[in-house]
Nucleic acid binder design. Structure first.
Lengths: 218, 218
DNA sequence: CCAATTCCTGACCGTATGGTCAAGAAGAGA
DNA sequence: TCTCTTCTTGACCATACGGTCAGGAATTGG
């Protein structure tokens, strides 16, 4: 019973429809892959006629590109937790929390991203080569700084980053497998908390963060 | 100039063609996903007419199922390194080595597997619920035994396994991203060695394996 | 040597898909 | 109110796809 008394303005209509279509597309692309997704199915999920999708997004590729780009934005935002941190325990701990939360709240987005990269990034290769490379190099400098300050072991920062990405995104991308191994049930709040705790503990301890800093994380 | 003097027997022909087709299919499914892959493209890669594929594998789904199952076998085999181990350093260390080697040698297979699971395992859900569950529970017992013996910290074995899977498979599934971040070049022998070393060190130290056991790993 | 069986493949078919279009409905702006 | 622009959508189209099939070639087994 949504009260739609006042008719929507054209601008509102456009914004609303684009949002609806993008949400439906993210879901369908995640579940079926780019090749397996059909415009008809996306339209059905969005509750709009197929021709209407093509009014807002000229081609399937264009729609897909928008989906991937919006995911990349979310991804980059989480990465900011890194910046202001004062040391590895705080910085990496917050980063892990943020990425785990994304895996929990936006599993479809994570899957679309994974699928895109697995297929050699046909539509966002330029992003990888520019934004991602810059971001990564910046974080490598931060981590190297921590190493130079003796706040963690001399780990190759790249492999540490890969491990962070892999582990946190695994909970979204392989969520179905995890669910199956959890007797078919999604992880409960407590299980998610335990997952975060385990990941943080293993990694932070593994890179040589002093015990008293770990204790401070609760 | 392969010397094909003696004509192949029917059985050899069948074995050879099935192998060729499965190899081509694995590659194409990995690169394009199930929905994006076409029988025509698989046929081209295999160097056979499309109709010939349908002679050996009745449908696209049947061919795909064979590919996924063969990957699952490789996966299970690597898992045996676990069994005979005498402690976490040796057992998990060997397991990580084995899985990293699979990621390096069979990236396409890993990608197909990842894609299948991401799409909620439409064709191998029964395997997940039987073989994988059994295997996982067995390893959990092994790990729990190590914990009970005080050979490692009391980590939830499930999340440790997820981290192992995620991290090792990441080098295959996200190999393109890693390559991009490596100036577009594949990892060298030395870089692969360093990756293995980093992963093993972080995880084993992270779960509380005593330092002298880590040193023993080189 | 002669069936019987297995293998091979070009041509073909029905369907589903991405995309188009024309004609109308609905706000916007004056 | 009247025009202009934006939005909506059923019907349509060309193509590409998975799959079929008939008929010939090759190998097998007796």
């Amino acid at each position: 019973m949504a009260s739609n008394l006042r008719p929507l303005s054209k601008k509102e209509i456009r914004r609303e429809n684009e949002r609806t279509i993008l949400a439906a597309a993210e879901k369908v692309f995640a579940e079926a892959g780019f090749g397996g997704a059909t415009m008809q199915l996306i339209a059905d999920v969005a509750g709009l006629p197929k021709a209407n999708l093509h009014y807002y997004f000229p081609t399937k590729e264009a729609l897909y590109r928008e989906v991937v780009q919006s995911i990349f934005q979310v991804w980059l935002q989480a990465a900011n937790t890194f910046e202001s941190a004062e040391g590895p325990a705080e910085g990496l701990g917050a980063y892990i929390d943020a990425k785990m939360e994304i895996s929990r709240r936006h599993p479809a987005g994570s899957k679309v991203w994974a699928s895109e990269v697995m297929h050699r990034a046909p539509v966002i290769q330029d992003y990888l080569e520019t934004t991602l490379v810059e971001w990564t190099n910046g974080r490598i400098d931060v981590i190297q700084g921590w190493i130079d300050d003796g706040r963690m072991d001399p780990i190759d920062p790249r492999h540490l980053l890969y491990m962070l990405w892999a582990t946190t995104q695994h909970y979204a991308d392989f969520g179905h497998q995890i669910e199956t191994l959890n007797n078919g049930a999604p992880l409960s709040d407590a299980q998610w908390a335990e997952a975060k705790r385990s990941v943080k503990m293993i990694i932070l301890k593994g890179i040589g963060v002093p015990q008293h800093e770990l204790d401070a994380l609760k």
